[in-house]
């Protein structure tokens, strides 16, 4: 088992290296001069030349890449071309907001999507199944950005009960000092007992939360259903029924454990999708996460920032897959 995990991590690192190499190459062929960006629009030719040397852009490609990798190993992702701040620091400020959204969506996907899939499989072709299938396939068919606009239209402009965007109301953030433990406002305010902030943050969370959670709930419910249906057809399930085991044991203990592998793969996959969806949703809800960060970075062609986000999401993706693979490897048949 240990060896298996080690092997997976090693492979993950190789893949990550590939991702970095490709992104790095892409940023080098972008028809834009980072040195010019660095010094700003009013700089002289000499200043740009100086910046080029300062940023190491005069070096051959391989050396630049080597330097990037060795900096990366020290946690240094370079400096943003726009703000001149370290990208790593900036990411640290933006990531918690995104993570908060993704975590919420994933939690909802697990506690709503999995039971929905199970009941759907249990009552196959009955009205509950039809309803839940319609919901789940509908949820994965909705354009996220449109749902976001739609919700804003209803709850902000028509009903006027929820805020338009942002993480917290301006007056609250001025009046109170925001707690900062994990950077996730809901969690931090709850832990520190600042309920005013919690309530405000929660209200801000509702619309983006629903928007982002729809897709993973639908995806997880669909996949759980089909995985479970396949397992319920297996001979060992028929066998355990033939021993007189009650249906709830068969379904909730036997079949569910068998479907753990496929379900965890789907949850991992859905986190990946959610991350991508938050990029869209953040733009609409003015949510200060990495989605916003990268949108701005793209407009400014801020390649160290773009790379930083790419590496972050690749690491998240690989880590999720690793976890899913480990859960699958817990299955005694493939135990290594």
């Amino acid at each position: 088992m240990k060896k298996y995990i080690l092997r997976r991590i090693l492979l993950g690192i190789i893949v990550l290296f590939g991702v970095i190499a490709i992104t790095f190459t892409i940023t080098r062929v972008i028809p834009s001069d980072p040195a010019a960006k660095w010094v700003g629009p009013r700089a002289t030719h000499e200043q740009i030349q100086e910046a080029r040397i300062e940023l190491g852009l005069d070096q051959p490609y391989i050396i630049q890449f080597g330097k990037y990798i060795s900096d990366l190993l020290h946690g240094d992702l370079g400096y943003s071309l726009r703000s001149h701040q370290p990208v790593a620091t900036e990411l640290k400020n933006y990531i918690p907001a995104t993570v908060e959204l993704v975590l919420l969506a994933t939690l909802l996907a697990i506690i709503l999507g999995i039971p929905l899939g199970i009941y759907s499989a249990k009552y196959k072709n009955r009205w509950l199944d039809h309803l839940s299938r319609l919901f789940s396939v509908g949820a994965v068919s909705l354009p996220t950005f449109w749902v976001a606009l739609f919700l804003q239209l209803i709850f902000f402009s028509k009903l006027e009960i929820l805020p338009l965007g942002g993480r917290i109301s301006t007056n609250i953030s001025i009046m109170y000092e925001l707690p900062n433990i994990t950077g996730m406002l809901l969690f931090d305010s709850l832990v520190t007992g600042k309920f005013m902030i919690f309530k405000d943050a929660f209200l801000h969370m509702i619309l983006p939360g629903i928007t982002v959670a729809l897709y993973p709930i639908g995806l997880v419910a669909r996949m759980t259903r089909s995985a479970l249906l396949e397992i319920l057809n297996e001979e060992y399930i028929v066998a355990s029924r033939s021993y007189g085991l009650p249906e709830k044991t068969v379904l909730w203990i036997y079949a569910l454990k068998n479907s753990l592998g496929p379900t965890s793969t789907v949850v991992a996959l859905s986190v990946g999708y959610t991350l991508m969806n938050t990029f869209l949703v953040e733009a609409i809800f003015s949510w200060p996460g990495i989605g916003r960060y990268i949108s701005d970075a793209v407009i400014g062609l801020d390649y160290p920032a773009i790379m930083g986000v790419t590496i972050f999401s690749a690491v998240v993706y690989l880590a999720l897959n690793l976890i899913a693979d480990i859960i699958i490897a817990l299955d005694p048949r493939v135990r290594v």
Binding site: E234, E235, Y236, I237, V238, A239, S240, Y254, K257, N258, L260, D331, P332, R333
Partner: peptide, 11 residues
């Protein structure tokens, strides 16, 4: 059952 391989739950 016929197939002892598939009539016991593998997990």
């Amino acid at each position: 059952f016929q197939d002892p391989m598939s009539s016991l739950n593998p997990v």
